[in-house]
């Protein structure tokens, strides 16, 4: 049985095709101006990769910020449920999931079946989200992918960035640059500030072993290693942390297909 999950995030859209045992194809592309268009394109991509046609799929479930805009999905499920379910498929021992996306940050407590027990969410503020790092990259001129590693190699130690607000932090950072501080030291301070913010969200649900991190920011080593250090826990990260939500959606699609087959 072939199933698909599609996760339309604020910044990127992800899709997976799964069979009963594994992920057979996955794709990620920028969401751009239209979630519906991105959903079709990424779906075409994963179908081509898996050599299947839309009609071969037993069920498609959508999730994420733009989940209601997927005309070809049979059902939509919240991204919180999908992340918990997706992480559980990779790492069954995980009870705490931290999902950091382009425009929000969620901490989820889940049970042994990947069901959500409790969650805390920040979707009101850019601090602690991918957007903050994108802006930091833009005004420091450091490519997004280098922010993590460089923030871990301060020259004279982190320079404190007073504000976690992405708007005010921009002023702080530009001021520090003008004052002549090393970029790595400033990046260390800025990443410290948002990790503090992320940690308060996790503390609202109470971190329990094991911990997994999903979403785009899981690729930022600077954020991950600081979260690990602050919580005193090692973070489990899937090979492609951005598709976890889509995997969860595909697992819900399997439930649905099995139910309707009965």
């Amino acid at each position: 049985m072939l199933l698909a999950g599609i996760d339309i995030g604020s910044s990127s859209t992800k899709a997976v095709v799964m069979n009963d045992r594994s992920v057979v194809a996955s794709g990620i592309m920028l969401t751009g101006a239209s979630g519906t268009v991105a959903a079709s394109s990424v779906m075409d991509l994963v179908l081509a990769q898996s050599g299947a046609a839309m009609g071969d799929l037993a069920c498609i479930v959508s999730t994420g910020y733009g989940r209601v805009n997927v005309p070809f999905a049979q059902k939509n499920v919240t991204e919180i449920s999908c992340h918990a379910r997706g992480v559980n498929w990779y790492f069954p021992g995980v009870r705490t999931v931290l999902d950091m996306g382009g425009q929000d940050c969620k901490a989820i407590k889940c049970d042994e079946g990947g069901r959500v027990v409790k969650f805390a969410l920040n979707d009101k503020c850019a601090a602690g989200t991918g957007r903050y790092l994108e802006r930091l990259s833009k005004y420091t001129g450091v490519p997004l992918g280098e922010i993590g590693p460089r923030s871990l190699q301060p020259v004279n130690g982190p320079v404190s960035v007073d504000s976690f607000c992405a708007v005010f932090a921009e002023n702080d950072v530009l001021l520090r640059i003008r004052e002549g501080y090393q970029i790595n030291d400033i990046l260390a301070g800025a990443v410290d500030a948002i990790v503090e913010r992320i940690v308060t969200i996790i503390q609202r649900i109470g971190a329990e072993e094991e911990l997994a991190i999903s979403g785009g920011i899981a690729k930022n080593t600077g954020v991950v290693s600081r979260v690990e250090k602050r919580l005193g826990m090692r973070a489990l990260i899937a090979d492609e942390p951005q598709i976890i939500g889509a995997v969860g959606a595909a697992l819900f699609a399997r439930d649905l297909a099995l139910k309707s087959a009965k």
């Binding site: 101006a33 425009q103 009101k124 503020c125 957007r131 802006r135 992405a166 708007v167």
Partner: peptide, 17 residues
């Protein structure tokens, strides 16, 4: 609707479009 100024910026662009 966005409280965050950064998110409001995107929201306003969407509203204009």
């Amino acid at each position: 609707q966005s409280t965050c100024t950064i998110f409001a910026e995107s929201e306003i662009i969407t509203l204009i479009h």
